[in-house]
Amino acid sequence: MKLLTWNINHRTFNRKIPYHMAKAIASLAPDVIVLTEYVPGSSHQRFIEQLYSYGFTQHVMSKRVLKENQVFIAANTTLECGKILAPTNIEKSVLSNALHILLSQEGFDILGMRVPDFSNQPIITPTFKRQCWDWILKIAADNRNHPFVIMGDFNTDPGDSRAKCGDQLSKLVDEGWQHAVPKSGASYWAIKNGSERRLDHAFTSRHFDVLDAKYIIESGSYVFAGKKSEAMSDHAVLLIEINIKSDKQL
Rank of each mutant, 00 (worst) to 15 (best):
I110M: 01
Y54E: 11
Q131N: 10
K245S: 07
D153H: 05
V34L: 09
P18Q: 05
S161D: 12
F56M: 00
K245L: 15
P40L: 01
A140F: 05
H146W: 14
Q178R: 10
V149H: 09
S170T: 14
A163Y: 08
L85E: 14
I124K: 08
P122L: 02
S96M: 05
S43T: 15
D117S: 15
G55L: 04
L28A: 06
D167C: 09
L51G: 12
V210Q: 08
R197A: 00
G107N: 06
N9V: 02
D153A: 10
N243L: 14
P40I: 02
L66M: 15
F224P: 03
Y215F: 14
W177D: 00
T125R: 15
A98M: 12
P126F: 01
K63A: 08
L103I: 06
A225K: 08
M232T: 07
R162Y: 12
I84L: 11
Q121P: 00
I139L: 08
A75C: 13
S184Y: 02
T127H: 14
A236M: 06
L211R: 11
K171G: 05
D31Q: 14
A98Q: 08
C132A: 08
L28W: 04
R64S: 08
V60Y: 04
L199N: 03
A140K: 10
R114K: 12
L79D: 07
L35H: 04
L102F: 10
V149D: 07
A86F: 05
S219C: 09
Y222N: 08
A22E: 09
A225E: 06
A29C: 14
E49A: 13
D153K: 10
D200V: 12
L28N: 05
Q121T: 07
K227E: 14
W177Y: 12
P158Y: 03
I217T: 12
Y38L: 03
W135S: 06
S195H: 05
A163E: 14
K23Y: 01
C165K: 04
H44V: 05
P18G: 04
K164Y: 04
N243D: 11
A190K: 11
R206F: 08
S187P: 01
C81G: 10
Q168F: 06
F108S: 05
A213E: 07
A213H: 05
P126Q: 06
M61W: 00
G82H: 02
K2G: 01
F208I: 03
E230K: 13
R162N: 13
A140R: 13
G112K: 01
K164Q: 12
G194L: 05
R206P: 00
L169I: 11
G152E: 07
V181S: 09
S27F: 06
F56T: 01
N89T: 06
S43L: 02
V32L: 11
L172Y: 01
A202S: 10
S104H: 12
P158R: 12
V223P: 00
M61C: 05
K183C: 01
N120S: 13
K63F: 01
K2T: 00
L250N: 08
P182V: 10
R198Y: 04
H10L: 03
G220E: 00
S229M: 11
H146S: 15
F154E: 04
I217A: 08
D174K: 15
G41M: 04
L137K: 13
A74V: 07
H207F: 14
M113H: 07
R114Y: 01
V115N: 05
C81D: 02
D134R: 14
W6H: 12
L35Q: 03
Y215N: 04
V94F: 11
D117F: 10
I150H: 08
L102Y: 13
L239S: 07
N76I: 06
C132E: 11
